[in-house]
Design a protein around this nucleic acid. Structure first.
Lengths: 333, 333
DNA sequence: TTGTATGCGTTATCAT
DNA sequence: ATGATAACGCATACAA
């Protein structure tokens, strides 16, 4: 005999399947004696509800989707950790999909989510994505979505981000306070809103402190390798920055390698500051002063907002949350 | 009107739902003209198959489960990246569950997987787990399982691991070749087979090279912090090692911080070598010579073995695969 | 308090 | 070549 079903129990006790169904879920209509009898038999037979059938019947998947560009080591581990924990606490499970930073794959993933009938969706956009129509126009009608980290602020979108501009400003404020004047800025992919915001903050802060903007000290880099290569080139010039700000752990990793290879000492010859959501600043030597941004907090906030949306605790669909960041002063400036 | 179903199409065309069902999947019985008509209407109406219903009907979940202790930054990102890609390529999706290194949660997760009717399961055991009965005795009968990385070698288990003993031996061989004699060994949680194997290799290699085993230079550490604290204490002793071997990125991170704080120069005052599956050795200064172990390869191999099991391409259920590792010589010894 | 009947969307099996 | 029916396991509106 295969898996025990409600029918089996019903047949055995010569009652109706619906009675069993109700008894097993403590329905108040069923008498205590009947409940006990049924639950005992269910236990003896090792009955396990077929959740697939339940979810089908109730048109619920019990699943939350998470679409991310790519599982890297800096940001997403903490995000996933937080999301998985909270999703499970709420009786759901987590499905992970990678877009590999490709718009096409992101669209495919969106379709998968739709067809899977997920109960909610968390999305960190690919860097190719310039428009979220493939989510909002069809899927969002049936399934709450929260965008986080890499987002596009549009009407009808719920988002969770950090205050990127402020984070960059805080970093530059610190450098200015320490007396650095020739500040290099290393940024990620140009398409991303986080890049735009952090760059905006960077420039604003320079202006505020009446510091010159050395365009030749600034660049965008998509990968660690690009960041390293470009910064190494920069270090070959005759005029050098006295401080460098990197907007992510990834760009930091590249810059640091270039600095190590050049043999410059931090912070004496070159100060370093970054925005980080990982442990890298602590692993480096010297440890890097940074603006801390918690991936765990982002994940937690995003998924909690999602559950609020799913449970209609939030009326409007365009909640746009911003998380705070803070300065961690270590040894690099 | 809500979602379009096969019934809707059938009603519209005044045919039977079963005809529609067959037409949509190119069943040879259906006439070409009928097929075209139906497929056209399906397209016009934006019909999307209800996979939940299909999976229910076919008693397939379309899901692969992945149980890991905790989403950290060193090992699992690469594993998850590989698994997600291959799972998706095979038309499945990936569910992630964390045990938080707790046996109880691992058992809960096992139950979830069972109730979800997953089609396959990948497991990296918690450090509390001493026995895999909660997987093999019930679940494995209905669902193929592959254990990876943190495994317990038992009959009837398919596993994917690296040759841990050999990896440790390779590391110590390198140190011996370079002339180091007082070697410290830093190991992870004692319960883990990978710890036991790596320690065994460590000791074997010392013996082989007729090197003394300095027990006072060796310890186990469960966390980065513990690794750092204990190594810092070790560095306060009068007799110091001339080289240190750490069995993971995590222990390396702790040891490195202690070394930085003490101000010892690598490799002049202390050589460092480790087993690594991440990028940390490249981020440190100097870059750390290590035995490379690819999380991506582990994930890929494990999930491919799982699909082989699912498709009955592998007859026996206790395939035990070992992946190779190799030395990456950088600047720390 | 319990039973009956129906349906969720799809497909396999049988009949026509 | 197409239709009719039943079934997957469960939940629920309605009846008794």
């Amino acid at each position: 005999m295969g898996r025990i079903t409600i029918k089996d129990i019903a047949k055995l006790l010569e009652v109706n399947p619906s009675t069993v169904s109700r008894a097993l879920k403590d329905h108040p209509d069923i008498s205590v004696s009947m409940k006990e009898k049924i639950q005992q038999v269910a236990k003896d037979l090792g009955y396990q509800p077929n959740y697939q059938a339940i979810r089908f019947r109730q048109n619920k998947s019990g699943l939350i989707g998470l679409i991310i560009p790519e599982m890297g080591m800096f940001f997403f581990p903490a995000v996933v950790k937080a999301i998985e924990e909270i999703v499970k606490k709420n009786g759901y499970n987590l499905i992970i999909l990678q877009s590999n930073d490709l718009l096409e794959k992101e669209k495919e993933n969106a379709l998968v989510c739709q067809n899977f009938g997920l109960d909610g969706l968390l999305v960190c956009l690919s860097k190719e994505t310039m428009d979220v129509g493939h989510f909002t126009e069809t899927i969002q009608r049936k399934m709450p979505i929260v965008f986080f980290d890499k987002v596009i602020q549009q009407k009808e979108c719920s988002t969770v981000v950090i205050n990127d501009e402020l984070a960059a400003i805080t970093a530059i404020n610190h450098l200015a306070r320490k007396g650095y004047k020739k500040i290099s800025g290393i940024f990620g992919n140009q398409n991303l809103e986080i890049t735009q915001s952090r760059k905006k903050g960077f420039l604003k802060a320079l202006t505020k402190h009446r510091l010159l903007h050395y365009g030749e000290f600034c660049f965008h880099a998509d990968t660690l390798e690009e960041s390293k290569r470009k910064f190494a080139e920069l270090l070959e010039q005759s005029v050098l920055p006295d401080a460098v700000f990197t907007m992510t752990d990834q760009t930091l990793a590249g810059v640091i390698q270039a600095i190590y290879e050049k043999g410059l000492s931090i912070p004496e010859e070159l100060a370093v500051i970054c925005i980080s959501n990982g442990n890298l600043p602590y692993y480096l030597n010297p440890q890097i002063t940074h603006i801390r941004h918690s991936g765990y907090a982002v994940g937690k906030t995003a998924v909690e907002l999602l559950f609020d949306l799913m449970n209609d605790k939030v009326v409007v669909s365009n909640n746009q949350l911003e998380l705070e960041t803070f300065l961690v002063e270590l040894d690099s400036c």
